[in-house]
Design a binder for these strands. Sequence first.
DNA 1: TCCTCGAAGGTACGAGCCGTACCGTATGGC
DNA 2: GCCATACGGTACGGCTCGTACCTTCGAGGA
Lengths: 201, 201
Amino acid sequence: MSGGRRRRGAELEQAILRAAAEELTASGYGGMTMDKVARRAGTNKNAIYRRWPQRAALGIAAYGHLAETLTPVPDTGSLRGDALELLRQADATWSSPRGAVLRDLLAAAADEPVLLELLREQAGAGAVNAAWRALLDRAVARGEAPPEAVHPRVVALPMALLRGEYAVRGVPAVPDEVLVEIVDEVFLPLVRGRGLPGRHG
Amino acid sequence: MSGGRRRRGAELEQAILRAAAEELTASGYGGMTMDKVARRAGTNKNAIYRRWPQRAALGIAAYGHLAETLTPVPDTGSLRGDALELLRQADATWSSPRGAVLRDLLAAAADEPVLLELLREQAGAGAVNAAWRALLDRAVARGEAPPEAVHPRVVALPMALLRGEYAVRGVPAVPDEVLVEIVDEVFLPLVRGRGLPGRHG
DNA sequence: TCCTCGAAGGTACGAGCCGTACCGTATGGC
DNA sequence: GCCATACGGTACGGCTCGTACCTTCGAGGA
């Protein structure tokens, strides 16, 4: 909106995305109205709908602008320390305003596989998974965990339990005791248990 | 709407709830409009808003009418069989149309603790939890699992993982292999692992 | 340098929904 | 038989989404 120039293509697209991201942080996903985004971007809904066919698609794309911060994989020297740290990072993210947006988007995209996959990309679900895997690999290398412990379901377990907590309690952040319990009462015992012979073939 | 009689109190309330439940099954939660419910119940929105202040509250109450079927706790003789059966029951519920409604309601109530608690009651979350606990208790009694295995987090684990699957994949039912994996690769190893001494205090 | 076509701006609109207000009317209790 | 209460009917304001239509700009080719 500077001068009489008319923005086009990528320039306009970035402006829209930034405006949408600002609306997201200001009013959440529910408050991210197409009209408000258009007004804030200094354009009109036409230009938006030409790029994103639905509100949810714009919301997901805009979330990508918000969630550009990549959290480093912790390395405390012990599996327990690493797991706890990573879980605390995740909890901090999920309980932040950005986490509220993420959860709303997740709900909005739940019945559209295409959007769901897009959201997973934007939210860095792959990176989180890789972090947990790296953490387990290191523990195995240190001899702290049996090699059998490295398994996709084990990798995904702590985040699933964290999500479960949010589903049960709702908005507020998960107390630290719960995170400790997830690690000490579930994650670590499971890692130990997978070193034992099972009954199944 | 039979005859010229005017319904009041509990009679009208039941009629509204039934109409809302029918709308839920017909169009899902998103399609459950206050106007449509009122029309189907043969009344008007006034009578509804006098009882439920928001759409979500009505949706949750109506869901209670849908989910009156209590599933029996399986008893196959082995922990693995019981767990698998219970997980399959849960998956069947969650992947049914009723499950779609439930997931929508969960999203709608996510940021209102009061509604969330109401929904947990209506959805029989307590009963499901009790079923998993009973199943573990029986396994302990049979000597199939160590007493330490009975722990709230262990009880809640399989359902949390199932929810996680829905969050990741979206709508379709979870393949049976995944359910088997949850039991064989996570649940049972954890139960075994909790019988071992850990490193924490 | 001029022309043309695609893209952006502006605006208006239809449709749907929520939640509220107002008022006439029946019903059950006193 | 009277009256407070709750129901029926209807209308409305406000908001949102998504679409349509036309004007205007801008970039690249002739």
